Computed example of a mutant assay.
Amino acid sequence: MKSIVIEKPGTFALRDLPDPIPGESEVVVDVKACCVCGTDIHLLQGEFKGAEYPLIPGHEFSGVVRKTGAKVTNAKPGDRVAIEPFIFCQTCLFCKQGKTNHCLNGMVIGHTKSKAIKLDGGFSEQVVVPARNLIPLADSVSFEAGGFIANIGTLVYALRRTGLQHGMKVLVFGTGANGLILAELAKKSGASVVAVTGRTKSRLAVAARMGVDETVIADEKQDLNLRRLAPHGFDAVFETTGVAPIVERAFKYVTPGGKIVLYGIVPPDQNASVNPFDICRKDLQVIGSFSSVNTCIVAQELLASKVIQVDHLVSHRFALDEWGRAIETAKDLSKCMRAVVRML
């Protein structure tokens, strides 16, 4: 099989590797589509803490089951599947409490190296994954859309963490694919007004077509326009960019008693300045949202029922041997919404 291997930071190659063999509780998947994520860029650039090289990246993918291990009962060859990339141990304190996203022994397909389990990612013609990480993919959901399921699962989890109620006013900072899908989900969950703000006009236009009520360009009039929409603040403010100064700005637009949800991951060496008095005086709830817990299956159901659709968010498509171009394209946020590598 052919696979993309990041041999060390800054160096990758398309390699011919032996076809994988599943363990007794694993399956081999013929990968059909794998989305390019910012994490893949960070892995290539050596910016992902804890990464060990060489590795095969890619954690947002879907495909068709090729082989199953002897103890696998939830899948058979030919099944269409998406992948839940987070692997948890099921035995640690947090797993037993249902907080599997905080597993003390957690690993991520396409990120982590392990002697006990294969964790190669989806930028490969075939990949071995634990059978319990399979998400059945409906025939009505494209393989490209299936590559979004892991991310949509994290968005559903963020909304659940928020406790979004009908009639709330919602503001989303960030116009990446995740920010736009989150805004659409908030609207379809009963928010009375959903506003999205960001720097790229073309992405704001996409947000408008997805049913977002208001789009606000992040320019010198951003503050005026946001306060016009919600003079007393928004009930829930989602920060999806992972940029520390924008985290700080988000606190300006939340109403007393409101919620600020930190979805975007700020690099661990960066800090945001927040006034504790404001949090106390305004009765604010600051909610972190990391990964997902049992929501990837919900994501698949949302796609299968066409509550949301994501194929239109794929702006660029590449073959596996064009992976380098895919990465460079994905870096240009002004032109690329979501790049997908296809092995159809």
Rank of each mutant, 00 (worst) to 15 (best):
residue 5 V to P: 01
residue 16 D to W: 06
residue 22 P to W: 15
residue 34 C to E: 05
residue 41 I to D: 02
residue 46 G to T: 00
residue 48 F to S: 04
residue 54 P to A: 10
residue 57 P to F: 10
residue 57 P to S: 12
residue 57 P to N: 10
residue 59 H to D: 02
residue 62 S to Y: 10
residue 62 S to V: 07
residue 63 G to A: 13
residue 74 N to S: 09
residue 83 I to L: 12
residue 85 P to F: 14
residue 96 K to Q: 14
residue 96 K to M: 12
residue 99 K to L: 15
residue 107 M to T: 03
residue 114 S to W: 11
residue 116 A to R: 14
residue 118 K to I: 03
residue 121 G to D: 03
residue 122 G to M: 14
residue 125 E to R: 15
residue 125 E to G: 09
residue 125 E to W: 13
residue 129 V to P: 05
residue 135 I to N: 02
residue 141 V to L: 12
residue 142 S to E: 04
residue 148 F to L: 10
residue 150 A to Y: 07
residue 151 N to Y: 07
residue 191 A to Y: 11
residue 197 T to R: 08
residue 198 G to C: 06
residue 198 G to T: 01
residue 198 G to Y: 08
residue 199 R to L: 05
residue 199 R to G: 01
residue 203 R to C: 00
residue 208 A to F: 01
residue 208 A to Q: 13
residue 221 K to F: 06
residue 222 Q to C: 10
residue 232 H to V: 02
residue 246 I to A: 13
residue 252 K to M: 06
residue 254 V to H: 11
residue 256 P to W: 14
residue 258 G to M: 13
residue 258 G to T: 04
residue 261 V to E: 04
residue 266 V to N: 11
residue 267 P to L: 11
residue 270 Q to S: 10
residue 278 D to Y: 08
residue 280 C to Q: 08
residue 284 L to R: 01
residue 308 I to C: 11
residue 321 D to V: 12
residue 322 E to W: 13
residue 322 E to C: 07
residue 323 W to T: 06
residue 331 K to S: 00
residue 331 K to V: 00
residue 337 M to E: 02
residue 339 A to T: 03
residue 341 V to F: 13
